[in-house]
């Protein structure tokens, strides 16, 4: 498993290819990529703050849980922090399993947990000023299905 928290952009294609190339025995690889929504052109940038130390620990915990629960062959999470422009990739998840149902479920589980349990905070900088993105009740509720 690989967990990376970084400010720099990442190469989705290169990471996906490298991941798929080393998952012997897998029949399915699912990748998900989260992008910065530009809110119809009003977003100037998104600033992502995180809690160094806890972030890596929290994500590793989620990935370990997913690996066990869905018997994954491997999993990868990359999440950025710092200043991002609209359209840029914020994060990616990749899961590899023998069959696709496990790979999809584990990727969804990781996405739900990353949203509400990984210590990141997003701030939208727009033409009207800056505003912290509020957590949504639906995101918290989504954890109940696991």
């Amino acid at each position: 498993m690989q967990v990376t928290v970084q400010a720099e952009p990442f190469d989705l294609g290169a990471l996906s290819n490298a991941f798929a190339a080393q998952v012997g025995g897998a029949g399915a690889v699912v990748t998900f990529t989260g992008l910065v929504r530009d809110n119809g052109g009003t977003l100037a940038a998104m600033e992502i703050e995180h809690y160094p130390g806890m972030t890596e620990k929290a994500i590793s915990g989620m990935v370990e849980q997913a690996m066990l629960r869905w018997s994954l062959i491997d999993a990868l999470v990359v999440h950025r922090h710092g200043l991002l422009a609209g359209g840029e990739a914020i994060m990616m998840v990749a899961t590899a399993a023998r069959h696709r149902a496990e790979a999809f479920a584990a990727a969804e589980f990781l996405m739900d947990y990353l949203k509400s349990r990984a210590p990141f905070w997003k701030k939208e900088l727009s033409t009207d000023g800056a505003e912290w993105v509020a957590a949504r009740d639906e995101d918290e509720a989504a954890l109940n299905r696991w």
């Binding site: 806890m54 914020i90 509400s116 990984a118 912290w132």
Partner: peptide, 29 residues
């Protein structure tokens, strides 16, 4: 609140804790 980098609760004891962090609900992903 997180105590020593683990999510915790407001009624948790602080004995032995080295690091306390306060923040709003997280918005990762």
């Amino acid at each position: 609140v997180a105590l020593d980098q683990e999510l915790s609760s407001f009624d948790a004891p602080l004995a032995g804790v080295r690091e306390v962090a306060f923040f709003p609900p997280m918005t990762g992903g």
